[in-house]
């Protein structure tokens, strides 16, 4: 029986002293798994049913939203990368107005994680499929209100991480040993008595990548905006992507 060929059997021979005199009866349970692979012919009716859904999806996913003039990879910078800057700036630009309309406040800065940049962007027309590749997860943007003290903890974290975690709205300078020698938000030194609205993903806020300074913020604000949807909306809005590294987060 061909559907069985890929299966592995578990045979439980339950040998039972039966109820009919002294005869021995046997009942069995068998379990195995059947591989769903190319040896199995697809059901034509099901394929036909899927087809219109598939076409609509592919047309939407592959329609051009913007142009990327230069290939961007996440390994192209020391402490800031073009693709990371793009993602952090997208969060600032797309979530900012939503947050402002809900709370009356401005997002002061954005922090994402380098590991969250899930793909590169080729020099080509950019589609929603590119956004799915860049951000396949369902993470939501959240805004955590952090004390100046917690921002200092964030800087210590970044000193130890020595990684190009994407930022926006903050300017960080480190020395060659990754010690912070200057940090400004909105052009001003960080004030320990002030609080700052930091946009990030719900994953990082909940302790992802060990960003413990995000735990127990003064306020935690949802913007009900998926990171991927922010990226897609940004792609729709612009004609050509920004592809620049800059000096927002550097070593001197």
């Amino acid at each position: 029986m061909k559907t069985f060929t890929s299966g592995i059997y578990l045979l439980l021979a339950i040998i039972v002293l039966g109820c009919k005199g002294n005869s021995i009866e046997t009942a069995e349970i068998k379990g195995h798994r059947i591989a769903v692979d190319e040896k199995v012919k697809a059901n034509a009716e099901i394929e036909e049913f899927i087809q219109p859904f598939k076409e609509h999806l592919n047309n939407t996913l592959d329609s051009t939203l913007a142009y990327n003039p230069r290939a961007m990879v996440k390994s192209d910078g020391d402490l800031n990368t073009a693709i990371g800057n793009l993602m952090a700036d997208v969060v600032m630009e797309q979530a900012g107005p939503v947050f402002k309309s809900r709370t009356g406040n401005e997002i002061d800065m954005v922090l994402l994680n380098h590991g969250g940049i899930r793909s590169s962007l080729n020099k080509e027309n950019i589609s929603a499929r590119s956004a799915y590749a860049l951000m396949p997860f369902e993470n939501e943007i959240v805004v955590a209100e952090l004390s100046g003290e917690k921002i200092k903890e964030m800087l210590t974290y970044l000193e130890q991480a020595k990684t190009a975690h994407p930022v926006s709205g903050i300017q960080i300078e480190m020395d060659q040993d990754y010690k912070v020698i200057g940090a400004k938000i909105n052009g001003e030194e960080i004030d320990e008595d002030k609080t700052y609205f930091v946009a990030t993903s719900d994953y990082l806020q909940q302790g992802g990548d060990n960003m413990s300074f995000f735990k127990d913020p003064i306020t935690l604000n949802k913007v009900d905006y998926k990171l991927r949807n922010a990226i897609i909306d940004y792609f729709k809005k612009v004609d050509t992507l920004k592809v620049d590294k800059d000096n927002r987060f550097i070593r001197k």
Partner: peptide, 18 residues
């Protein structure tokens, strides 16, 4: 990727265990 399959064989009284 896989389909699980478990087959139970039962007697007239629908017993699988005695």
């Amino acid at each position: 990727l896989y389909l699980g399959r478990i087959d139970f064989y039962l007697d007239d009284k629908n017993n699988i265990e005695t």
